[in-house]
Design a protein around this nucleic acid. Sequence first.
DNA 1: TTGTAGGCGTTATCAT
DNA 2: ATGATAACGCCTACAA
Lengths: 384, 384
Amino acid sequence: MEDPPPTPATPATPATPAFPGTSAPPAAPAGPAAPAGLTAPAAPTGSAATLHDVAREAGVSIATASRALNGSARNVRAENVARVRAAAAKLDYEPHLSAQAIAKGSTRTVALVVRDVADPYFSTIAAGVTQAATEAGLIVTMAVADGSPERELEIVRTLRGQRPRIIIVTGSRIEGTTTRDALIEELTQYRTAGGRVVLISQRDLPFGTVTIDDRGGSAALARALLARGYRRFAVFHAAPSLRTSRDRHEGFLSGLDGSGAPAPLAFETGFTRDGGHEAARRLVGRGMGDVEAVFAVNDVMAIGAMTAFREAGLIPGRDIGVAGFDDIAPAVDVLPALTSVAVPLREAGLTAMRLALSTDDPTAHHPLPAQVTLRSSTPHRPTP
Amino acid sequence: MEDPPPTPATPATPATPAFPGTSAPPAAPAGPAAPAGLTAPAAPTGSAATLHDVAREAGVSIATASRALNGSARNVRAENVARVRAAAAKLDYEPHLSAQAIAKGSTRTVALVVRDVADPYFSTIAAGVTQAATEAGLIVTMAVADGSPERELEIVRTLRGQRPRIIIVTGSRIEGTTTRDALIEELTQYRTAGGRVVLISQRDLPFGTVTIDDRGGSAALARALLARGYRRFAVFHAAPSLRTSRDRHEGFLSGLDGSGAPAPLAFETGFTRDGGHEAARRLVGRGMGDVEAVFAVNDVMAIGAMTAFREAGLIPGRDIGVAGFDDIAPAVDVLPALTSVAVPLREAGLTAMRLALSTDDPTAHHPLPAQVTLRSSTPHRPTP
DNA sequence: TTGTAGGCGTTATCAT
DNA sequence: ATGATAACGCCTACAA
């Protein structure tokens, strides 16, 4: 079954040519983002129906058509509304969002900047943002910063070209003050131009922020482990410039405070599964000493560490306790099930949107709780 | 440690209006944007710098400014180029993408439709798409169909309003012919209007398509398991309307063909971790019979099943073989490591973009290989 | 209720 | 090389 040949509703509009085919490869896509490998984008237009077409088809003026479809349909004769609607349907008309944006002076898009979409941490947040955006009739555009503060800065800069209503930045690790200041500057500009800014998990910046209680969660975890009889720890953490890692690390230490437990060994490594794996190998290599449990600052690290321990002949949960952070889905399916700290990631995305859409103080901070979830990777230690 | 005193909030700029909560998108903003009433001196209005501002600041015409910044800078005196660039930098000017789009008649966006961003399957594909798009200087907008064909259709329809250069649809499960035909119709319209369409993992539709070799991979897996001595299988699959599930199921059966192995038991369940868990419980509940191994049509199902088996006192890899599909990251960290079929998900996203950007046949099909990866969840069976 | 006209920020076509 | 000026598709006073 083929598509019915579109009725030649527009007989007098030869105008726009069909496909330029292989023609003019648009010159270097200018701008900062250098095109690396791929071929230049193909040529566009074959043109879609415009409001003008609809108006003509319906036998009314453009203004009436506009009103009937979009604006105050109340002031349009019912008959004309029907006419216009029919014409629009017939021509398969969709309003040109860019044109609307430029005419109205505001778009309906929210721009989301993440470090890595493939990471479940961010993709879950993205899911929350997308859901809330859809409910509010907004479009989500996404950009990936890839862990580079410079890239992030550049993204935010070019993002302003979209004139989004909202910019949400998550997972950045601005610590170097140069890019940090530039980022603040950029976002401030954007805000004074009327945009809303919300940061997720990026404390201490003068914007609306959704924070996850990394410190508190880690501290609570430390106390819970103490209560289970653990006293000697190792911590697998990432570079301290990664704020999330540092907060969780410091939180854990603070949770140990006053317990009399010795200072944990610290291993710096990658914020990834392989990082955890590598740190565990290092720990095993230098001798476990009297380490009773490992706290890895996120679950994928913890899971990688468990595998490494097992490869070294140590059984997690028996020979060594292991705990992570995030409570990602696989935590309950690894063996032993992983003790972790649950964070409401999707909720973070929803909350960010809520914050952005609210008319309240645009610099409000909204903390989200983190909840310790004890599992068999850290069983009770037999009291000696 | 609280946030520093926020910068003096914009006094007279109400900015974004409230939103319609659950209601329809066209939220007629009530009040006017700004009290732009009388004499407008150094208007601190919330708008961003325009090309006009830049031109004035640089002391050139708006046309020259445009050329200097964007177009053929070749025909502009070097001095003026510098002037304009300086002005742009000073004013923190970013070209209004919507305005450019409307003037040029084409946008720089690619629209991506996925079933669920939070699912690693789709988020990995999304990562590939985003990467390729960024390299080509394109912006990605994302919409979530949530498993509903109707929603998917509606999304594609409204997506056309963005006038994206490319629409990529992944993970749909159009089987009901009504929505299927409507979807084809909609996408065809879009294509004749000059857009490029690429489908991922959606066979049999007259558009560019990136397919993953579900059937072949499953068949190869079946043969590999036969070679390891397994003969009696159970298959955990999802509703047959979910094409991916059906293909993998059928492929597995075809791989068994001619081996003389008995027909596997089939358990229909959810395409999720919990689905696999549930099916395994059902299998255990009705008695394992002589089932030697389970093939779950994706990894999360397989992993859920392993946990369920363990809960029932069966040790995966010893008492029951388990295999999945996708080879997601945790597959190597569960115990035992999961036999699976590796699928180049990120590559699928990249390939989709490549297909979309190429000038070749817009309906080309590009199959991606799937590779069997044997691990200890399906050890060699001792030959009796 | 309807149409006319002006404007939104850019680009592109003209002359100059 | 540069500057008016007309599009681009839509919205919205302002008139009629």
